[in-house]
Design a protein around this nucleic acid. Sequence first.
DNA 1: GCATTGAATTAACAATTGTTAAGAAATCAC
DNA 2: GTGATTTCTTAACAATTGTTAATTCAATGC
Lengths: 192, 192
Amino acid sequence: MHPLQTLIKQFSPINTKEWELLYEKCTETTIRKGEFFIKKGRVETRIGFILKGCFRQFYITPKGEELSTYFFFEHNFISSYISCITGKASLITIQAIEESTLLVFNYTVLEDLFKAYPNWQLFGRKIAEYLLIGTEDRMVGLLADNPEERYRKLLASTDKQKILERIPQQYIANYLGITPISLSRIRNRINT
Amino acid sequence: MHPLQTLIKQFSPINTKEWELLYEKCTETTIRKGEFFIKKGRVETRIGFILKGCFRQFYITPKGEELSTYFFFEHNFISSYISCITGKASLITIQAIEESTLLVFNYTVLEDLFKAYPNWQLFGRKIAEYLLIGTEDRMVGLLADNPEERYRKLLASTDKQKILERIPQQYIANYLGITPISLSRIRNRINT
DNA sequence: GCATTGAATTAACAATTGTTAAGAAATCAC
DNA sequence: GTGATTTCTTAACAATTGTTAATTCAATGC
């Protein structure tokens, strides 16, 4: 089974015919390291499924600094989900950290499927719910844990290896809500 | 129009007949100050709409401390949304901060409406999307802003008056991710 | 009214983080 | 390979936060 189909089935019982309605609208793209899939300020309705490579998502703060908030690896979606559902300009930017391959489709395709197929409509709700649970969990961690505890939890997570090996530390520091210098000190404290 | 109907219509074009299918399943309840609407560890499927009063939502940390994460006032929903959608025991507790009046219905009623009415299914997706946008915004604030900036943003928010006048400061401190003592110092710094 | 409980403030000290700057290490381009 | 750029680490200092404890203030119960 196609890895995208496998992922979709984890959210809703999409059958083969329903799956093909989406798959026939997909195109494969390659993105070189450092290039952008989503850019802040644009209305972005493309959704990518990562076949190979990895990406970081970041905000550009009022001070002009980049604030990395998420990392994405193989067999995950990337998009400005909020731009898709609100129709407004994207607040986030998504950049390739490695040379990557994507399967790309448009949110409008998904919207049409929502209207016509209850299974796809269910998929839409489940995805939003899934993202909400993840974000809520992240928020509570930021409120409850200090930076060192947050780094320890990252070390204990299933994504540990991928993140530590493939993501530059300055981005990981953003993700933890601290400066790269502070992360360097925490690493020093722990490894001694 | 009923305030609950007004709220629902902001998410989906529910017609009068569809609205009454929910309304006839609602019951009014009064909760005294300090009592609980949702308790950690239970599978909670009730949803409340606040007619009068206010509530705080909190987590109980592994150390046994209460960590307030949200405050709710008139004409808002309260529930363990994640318990409803996952069917698992609630991680959160919701407590009345003032004597309050609620309109209560069950998530199972909503689930049945999701299946039978496209407008209600749409409502389900829009609610999840709305909550996601709010939580994401909160998460970015915690990553990007220091405690003083977070307090300043709270002072600039539309809920400022409600929160400052009706919520004890120790709970506001939790909400900002700091100790009540640190909040007291920040208030002192700003007001001088 | 009075005592008691809990909430908010202030103080003092330790620990952590942010900031600026410099040096070491790794990566990239040619 | 070599130079240039970027990333990561370390240091020193300032600022902020957490912690513990004492004090003041407000709310509550009897």
